[in-house]
Design a protein around this nucleic acid. Structure first.
Lengths: 137, 137
DNA sequence: TCAATTTCTTGACTGAGTCCAAATCTCGCT
DNA sequence: AGCGAGATTTGGACTCAGTCAAGAAATTGA
């Protein structure tokens, strides 16, 4: 697992304590929303502004160091597992999210039957259901 | 195409002018967000409160008369095409949304490889890309 | 080391949606 | 048709996630 500092350099981004801390925070908290990331960062470096958190998360997602997931009905979440086309399983009751590998192998597992002239760059899959804990209730 | 009034009755819901108008508004405006639905309803019956629009949309979605789609980065949208497991293609630039049929036929086209104990009830697929108009720019 | 540029901070602001209590309407019964 | 109970709608305040903008601070490259 590469050092945050090195990752930022490789992408040609300025290396700041905030960005490194955000990267580490997401690593420690997979599928965390922005406010949880902010808190985790504060635990590490003291303070960070809300804006810096949003800026970092957006930039890092754009550059491919993070992946942003935006399930219906909840705030955006982030993870460091990028570039492997995996999908997510979300609990309708508690919002818990877990990774699932693509059912059909490693390659992008979907192609639209009729693309209507669109230039498609991603097929996003979200499975909705209830997690084991919530089923008990 | 069934009458809104009849549809509501069949589901055991109270028949109100607001609900009928919301149903018709979504029919006329596929993939419209709540505020557009509200405006369309106002054009038909004069006034409706924001709350009644949200309540109706939620209730109708719950009862299977509407389908709610919540693409990342935009407000929830609604459509009357329900029960056929089709998916959506969304333009990253302008947000335009079009229907796509499932690539693998009519049956639910996905099963998670490992469901982690979840009780899965829906597999949602969103294709991201750029629409023909936005490609020109 | 220093200037130029990028990034971060602060605080106001927006948009989508929710909460709540009071007013109104719908439905089923007589 | 009229009535009452319960469901629905209204209006307004409020929350939450995220954005905007301007000045302060940090990073980078020379």
């Amino acid at each position: 697992m590469r050092e945050p500092q090195q990752l930022l350099r490789e992408k040609g981004l300025a290396v700041t304590v905030q960005r490194m801390a955000v990267l580490r925070a997401v690593r420690r908290n997979p599928h965390a929303p922005a406010d949880v990331v902010a808190e985790a960062v504060r635990g590490e470096i003291g303070t960070i502004s809300k804006q810096a958190v949003y800026d970092s998360l957006s930039l890092l997602s754009e550059k491919g160091l993070l992946r942003r997931i935006q399930p219906a009905g909840s705030a955006a979440r982030y993870e460091t597992r990028v570039g492997d086309n995996h999908h997510h399983l979300v609990c309708r009751d508690c919002g818990k999210m877990v990774d699932v590998d693509c059912a059909l192998g490693e390659t992008p597992c979907l192609h639209a039957a009729d693309d209507a002239g669109f230039e498609i760059d991603e097929a996003e899959v979200v499975y909705w259901g209830r997690c084991p804990d919530c089923q008990k209730e």
